[in-house]
């Protein structure tokens, strides 16, 4: 049985819940009192993940930290369609790795701004917001050119991959950190498409897609 060490309001945990749902997997949740309890910095949790971060996933005798690593594992092990992480497709795997690293950048900027605004973290929120806008411009341009070529998703195949799952949460939660998505129409179209993926699930702060037109 898969166990997810989870915090409801964490976008990185949401990534994992999204893929678990999309793949139709069953799992057990161990909730972590991140705010204000800081259970992710407690002694017992640091033994599980010395970095003191959620999520952590356990499956059989395997323990994994880092949302991107967990997405990679879940897709490689459980996705029978072979689409979410297409092993053997060198080009797509390269693109996926590139966007997983980009997702880390979104966490370091858009998510940091949200931590400051929501959870009262003491950090340079203006620098975090400026960094998020730099990344969102890159993302918006990439998605706009993809659309011109008839592609709806971050990587080359005509279907979403774990790269989309990794980038979606902190993009869609960005306004909680004061990062507006008004200037990024291609990002807004992509988040709407993402919300229509079968198995898509919500978290607090994320709303369902409007009716299709």
């Amino acid at each position: 049985m898969i166990t997810l060490y989870d915090y409801e309001l964490s976008g990185n945990c949401y990534k994992v819940r999204l893929l678990l749902n999309i793949l139709g997997l069953e799992w057990k949740t161990r909730r972590i009192d991140f705010h204000p309890g800081r259970e992710h910095k407690s002694d017992w949790f640091l033994r599980l993940n010395p970095l003191g971060q959620v999520p952590v996933l356990e499956d059989d005798d395997l323990g994994l930290r880092d949302a991107q690593a967990i997405l990679t594992y879940l897709a490689a092990r459980y996705d029978r369609s072979g689409r979410w992480y297409p092993a053997g497709d060198a080009r797509t795997l390269g693109e996926i790795a590139m966007w997983l690293a980009f997702a880390e950048g979104i966490t370091a900027t858009a998510s940091a701004a949200r931590l400051a605004e929501n959870f009262l973290y003491d950090l340079d929120v203006d620098a975090a917001r400026a960094g998020a806008h730099r990344l969102f411009r890159v993302l918006d341009e990439h998605l706009w050119f993809a659309e011109q070529e008839g592609r709806d998703w971050l990587c080359a195949p005509g279907h979403p991959t774990i790269a989309d799952v990794a980038c979606f949460p902190y993009v869609v939660l960005s306004e909680e950190g004061g990062v507006s998505r008004m200037p990024y129409p291609a990002i807004r179209r992509w988040t709407d498409r993402f919300k229509r993926i079968p198995g898509f699930t919500l978290m607090s702060g994320v709303f369902p897609a409007g009716a299709a037109v």
């Binding site: 409801e8 309001l9 909730r31 009192d33 309890g37 909680e176 607090s204 702060g205």
Partner: peptide, 17 residues
């Protein structure tokens, strides 16, 4: 306590946006 706090945050984070 943990479940009580979890539920409060789940609900409040829906109101926030």
């Amino acid at each position: 306590e943990e479940a009580t706090r979890w539920y409060m945050q789940l609900i409040f984070a829906q109101d926030k946006p």
